[in-house]
Design a protein around this nucleic acid. Structure first.
Length: 286
DNA sequence: AAGAGGCCCTGATAGC
DNA sequence: TGCTATCAGGGCCTCT
């Protein structure tokens, strides 16, 4: 599920339902996530007020009074959903209520006065962390490259980085220290729409190709956010409804389908690059 | 020291 | 039906 657009959707929903609310209680059912959930986790958050929820790359950040930061990473299979308390059926939050809740793998539950937030993650590649100072969280994110929408993710920046790299463009887009938030689905989709072969060495990209990559990165990610993200296996937003971007896939998970470009008779190829499934059209992507 | 590969884990699906 | 193998949206760690 979770690349930048999906995490962005979750973040937006969380702001609608728990911003300015107080965490009454935290229950950890399973501490064995990607990293062990620390012993003081529950107590650090108990009775604390959430100021706002933001996002950096694929991380959700809860800013909590006073000067405390909770980050949640959803890994490969993490989802967040919520349940309204029985006695509050008719709150204005009912609209978001999730219909059928997963029962297994509900590892962490955050209780609020009229609802609870549940962190579910079958594969447990996700994790939570708490930072006590702004400096600590800043430091934690210091290795991340710019956000794709940020003005520092520009032609000059990429050209400079690409000149020093022997990598191909596909693995570069997945390199979170180059640009943060793009995952395997969107890397494939961005390259198709840029008409660039995933194997192409970044050193050999022309200026107009790099420009195009920036443009298409923005286009694809923004469209995905607008469509509510991609749902390919499990739920997506916190209400359990699916996103629509999977219907916009041009190449991802479309091996042997006809290339969607008008007039192109080639079939979409699937091949591994750095152990990640890579889909592309040999004819359109040079 | 950048870059490639292994690995953490469960569940869905494909193939026999 | 029931087994085994393969694959999945990520990122940390180790080795070269």
């Amino acid at each position: 599920m979770p690349e930048l657009p999906e995490v962005e959707i979750v973040k937006q929903s969380l702001n609608k339902i728990v911003k300015f609310k107080i965490i009454n209680k935290v229950l950890v059912n399973n501490r064995n996530l990607r990293f062990k959930v620390p012993k003081n986790f529950e107590n650090s958050l108990k009775k604390q007020k959430i100021i706002k929820i933001s996002r950096r790359s694929k991380y959700i950040i809860f800013e909590i009074m006073f000067e405390q930061y909770l980050i949640i990473h959803l890994g490969m299979s993490g989802t967040i959903h919520f349940v309204i308390n029985n006695n509050k059926e008719n709150t204005n939050l009912s609209f978001y209520q999730k219909k059928d809740l997963p029962s297994k793998h509900n590892h962490i539950i955050f209780f609020f006065s009229e609802l609870k937030i549940i962190y579910n993650d079958p594969r447990r590649f996700g994790f939570v962390k708490i930072f006590k100072t702004k400096k600590d969280i800043k430091n934690y994110f210091s290795k991340l490259g710019p956000e794709p929408f940020s003005s520092t993710f520009d032609l000059k920046y990429l050209k400079r980085k690409f000149n020093k790299s022997i990598k191909n463009i596909k693995s570069s887009l997945l390199d979170q220290s180059l640009v943060s938030g793009i995952g395997n689905i969107y890397a494939n989709e961005i390259l198709f729409r840029s008409k660039i072969n995933p194997f192409k060495k970044v050193k050999n990209l022309t200026l107009s190709e790099i420009k195009n990559i920036i443009l298409k990165t923005n286009f694809v990610l923004k469209l995905a956010i607008k469509k509510g993200g991609s749902s390919i296996r499990d739920f997506k937003n916190i209400s359990g409804s699916k996103g629509d971007f999977q219907n916009e896939f041009k190449v991802y998970s479309r091996e042997n389908y006809l290339c969607p470009s008008i007039g192109c008779k080639s079939k979409i190829i699937k091949i591994n690059i750095n152990n990640r499934a890579t889909y592309y059209c040999k004819n359109c992507q040079k």
